[in-house]
Design a protein around this nucleic acid. Sequence first.
DNA 1: CGGGTTGTTGACTTCCATCAAATTCGGTGG
DNA 2: CCACCGAATTTGATGGAAGTCAACAACCCG
Lengths: 253, 253
Amino acid sequence: MNKAVDVSCMCGKCGDCPIYNRTVCRAGTTDAMAQLNRIAHQRTYPRGSVIQAQGETCDIVGNIFDGVIKLSSSSVNGDDHIVGLLFPSDFFGRLFAEESRFSYEAATDVSLCAISRPAFERFLADHPEVEHEMHKAKLDELDAAREWAAITNGHTTMQRVATLIYVFSRRSENQHLRGDAARHPIVHVPLSRRDIADYLGTTPETLSRNIQMLSRNDVIRIVDSKHFELLDSAELIRYSGESREDLNRIAAH
Amino acid sequence: MNKAVDVSCMCGKCGDCPIYNRTVCRAGTTDAMAQLNRIAHQRTYPRGSVIQAQGETCDIVGNIFDGVIKLSSSSVNGDDHIVGLLFPSDFFGRLFAEESRFSYEAATDVSLCAISRPAFERFLADHPEVEHEMHKAKLDELDAAREWAAITNGHTTMQRVATLIYVFSRRSENQHLRGDAARHPIVHVPLSRRDIADYLGTTPETLSRNIQMLSRNDVIRIVDSKHFELLDSAELIRYSGESREDLNRIAAH
DNA sequence: CGGGTTGTTGACTTCCATCAAATTCGGTGG
DNA sequence: CCACCGAATTTGATGGAAGTCAACAACCCG
């Protein structure tokens, strides 16, 4: 197998690309990356826009550059359920399928590297070492999806809420904290209450009650609707009903 | 890419293999299959035995020949959740990972073609066209897992029960029906009530109540605890809260 | 023929979805 | 800058679905 070379991302402006060190961008050789650069292009979507609708033909795939994409399935009755969230450096889109079973929607403003699906499939056929990396990443994603399914099922809403906040606290850990280092970390959850509720399989009302409860019990402080100060990490873990190790494994994604 | 040849299954006794026409056994060339035959071997597990424990090193992978494997995640409190079921011709095991996040247990007596994981990974490295097929199969599995997660979340227990029975009715459709063709189909659900409950994210008690309810309303007739006569398919679909098309897509797996 | 497992039924309680109303927030134009 | 509007969030009150505890029946297997 060719040695992977740490080269530029396929987005085309890779000097300052923050996500260059993952899956696709890491596995390919310099030649492969050059090839990718020719077929990839940057795009942005405003919050709320649909990148790929459920049941439509799958046109594009790619890497998320910035923002959060929600992967959701909506049934006939109008109530939809979010089955996954995609973050920067995650791959989005459905390879090797004509139509998408889920919709990909921008939960925040999103910018991404897009590639035409057929073009990327041809690229993968030429570069099995890249497909191998994609395959491994998908196996991890499958494990994560199942792990999340196990959580949303066997647990109370409060446990799910606590788990979510903890996972997001780990995710935003390496970002700049407001104020001095001695302060408690600020957790940023860039989703609306409705989106969080859809992800956790509950309603905005019940979600709000649980968040307020955590606040009343001094586990978190609500800075604004999308920012929480984490006052008592150990207590949050207790509310989640999971062990710290399990939580960290989930957060690792 | 090499042309796929419709050859024998890797289990080694392929003349009468009932599952030869899927993923691995279909994608490889004759040479590849011969190579597989050398490293694969048949094995059987009695009902209830653990094929691969959660957190243990992943030794073996392979194809299921007969029986049902449950893929479950158990938390510290002892309550475990079934995150997936694997049927004949499904691939089991976790490639490219040192330890398994889930346990693979025989829900019924199981016989399978087993291959050492490292040996199979070397095989895949030599045969990218087979890895490509594995990759595609996993993408389908990921979709199915997410679809199931959406079902277990947004729906009532009765809807989940109805969905499960319908899916199993489609699955056992091509098997021999008892009695004459005019009779209603017999649905075989080879799982214990506890396993079904764990899969649906409920309790044996609630599950039992719902099954009895379907029986009282003449949707099904309970032949014995694992066999149901499907009296009114349309009514079952109504109870499931899904459209017939969605159900069939789910059943297609 | 017992004893243990599995499945069913009943009574009670808790959690959460629902409906409804109040409040806050974000943006827009005066 | 402030007033205003609509959307998002929070709070309150209520009913229903389902989990829990407990007892019982059916089944399997030695």
